[in-house]
Design a protein around this nucleic acid. Sequence first.
DNA 1: TTGAAAGCGGTACCAC
DNA 2: GTGGTACCGCTTTCAA
Lengths: 370, 370
Amino acid sequence: MSTDSRQLTAPPGRPAGIKDIAKALGVSTGTVDRALHAKPGINPMTRARVLRMAESLGYRPNLAARYLKSRKHLRISVHLPQEIALFWDSLRDGIRDAAAPFAPALQVDFRSYPRLGEGDTPLFEQALRDGTNGLIIAPGNPAKLRSCIRKAARRDIPVICVVTDAPDTQRLTAVSADPFTVGAVAGELLSRYLPSGGRVAFFTGWLGTHDHAEKLRGFEGSLDASRGPIHLGPVVEAHDDPREGYRRALKLLRAHRDLKGIYVSTVNSLPVLQAAEQAGRLQNLTIVTTDLFPELVGWIRAGKVAATLYQRPLTQGRLALLALYQYLLDGTCPPPRIAVAPHVVMRSNLNLFLERLPVDEEGVNRPRQG
Amino acid sequence: MSTDSRQLTAPPGRPAGIKDIAKALGVSTGTVDRALHAKPGINPMTRARVLRMAESLGYRPNLAARYLKSRKHLRISVHLPQEIALFWDSLRDGIRDAAAPFAPALQVDFRSYPRLGEGDTPLFEQALRDGTNGLIIAPGNPAKLRSCIRKAARRDIPVICVVTDAPDTQRLTAVSADPFTVGAVAGELLSRYLPSGGRVAFFTGWLGTHDHAEKLRGFEGSLDASRGPIHLGPVVEAHDDPREGYRRALKLLRAHRDLKGIYVSTVNSLPVLQAAEQAGRLQNLTIVTTDLFPELVGWIRAGKVAATLYQRPLTQGRLALLALYQYLLDGTCPPPRIAVAPHVVMRSNLNLFLERLPVDEEGVNRPRQG
DNA sequence: TTGAAAGCGGTACCAC
DNA sequence: GTGGTACCGCTTTCAA
């Protein structure tokens, strides 16, 4: 008679291993391995028995041993733009830092392309050919990547979006500073900052971009919800171009002498600030900007920028990597969207953020003189 | 003649291991191991040669193999108060989450004592007796723990402080929301929120407590630095006692009919809010509070609390654990202080934080009626 | 003071 | 289909 397996189901002193399963069933470790990994060439019956026993013994694979033997380097590819360098470099740093504890089991390949949406498709396809195990991307133009993502999904290669999302695709998840909330925070700040009311302008890149439109929605909703008599004024698309931003800002300021505040919802805030200073309007404008970069520091220090909403690239990178690694390691599915709470950076807490920013404190931080 | 070691210093195809060092030097792996771990019973000369070779080969220990064999569970003790449960539980969660990837190589023992500063000393001494490898504590009364920390340092057992610091001790580092900055942010927010000026009150626990005094310094400095004609009004110590807080708040409001704002710099904000509501003054007060807990949610939603400064216990826990683990693993010394940037939580971004807060959305969040 | 060798828990290959 | 076993890189023990 075979031994009564039930008495073996009691948890032993130390965690059950593959050998314990094999012994309890009177099979070899090889068989157990094949069963656990759904490898070909095993009797379905045997497989079922092994799985049941593994379950009842509470078997958890020892990852140290697994990695030690198989040396299976998980390789993941990270494709991000070069511009704006500081932001994307921070994101890369966040990914690198989060990946460090898993080295050398996890290898991260960074690849860059010039600007958001320009040249990411070929990189994606190359990564698929190279047999990457997972991807982190910032889809500037989701439509163009749609088929790539589908292809990856078919091969069970997870894709995580950062900063921007590719909605309605099979990407595993998207990590971002929820744009609606970011816009809403800007709106609430300006409402509170301007209790006597007035009109505020909204600068953005392209209203056709999902994220930018969401920011506007959040911003407007927040202004409406506030009790103050503050209202949404002109909405300006500057297409993330400094010269266009400067030109449009100047024009805007001339056309609207009563403007009380401005929210620049993309990183393109410097031209707007310079235009406002040029026009001598800074004193009477409350300005909220987006993200944090060396040239902005001086403006914040001087109180010319009331607050900037920092999208925390480091944290986004960390969360994206962890979600991807978890999925690759044990199939854990992250929630469909991971929202990072934006930081409200002002003069009083600016220094805390500069520590993590590769900022040259000398000179760079002075606001340019008109 | 021994082989010329220099040609071996070139990085090989795959990472150098302990055997590579042994082979290059013509010694055994046992010797290499003893040298690398400063174990007793090895010729200093041999040791030096091994270390040099390890260096030049760029040797990095294979952690998988190390853990697989030695099963050396690092055990660390985390001692935190029970009250206020929600805050400290979040901190514990942050530690737990950060430790999870290292399981089972790292085991975390949580121990609790009733309130900050009450009963932490015996726990500390017990942990030392039990042979813990490291500690995370929240020193409510640094003076009492001073000798404990010294004892730990002598045995090379790292101690990390969270939330509160024990300055001038040998603790490895302290993770906290830098109190000066937190106070300064509150001051800047109130200055901006109240452009027409006036006086604002400052509620705290004990001015004798380092952190609380720092918050006041930051707060006042920020008010002074702002251009607005806003000034520091009454400073109230409520000793973190709800009844005392309520009583003092009522009295304060009666004595200062012109008060424009209040900053409650400890978690003891509910009584102050209730007093203000009772006195019918909420409409004309801009209130900034500290931390986030279920009972506060309704007040924020209703716009009665303009903002609350959240000290991000999850992040503090994560950073503390990582710093401790890094130190235990490869001796990496963290900076003497790790500052967490506090989050500015307002109506518009509240939901992002509630997701991580064990909050019952039903009923609990309504502000209590008088 | 040093060397040799036995595992740690899985994986992968070969033989049956 | 299944069993047996060498081996991943390191630690630890025992013998020299």
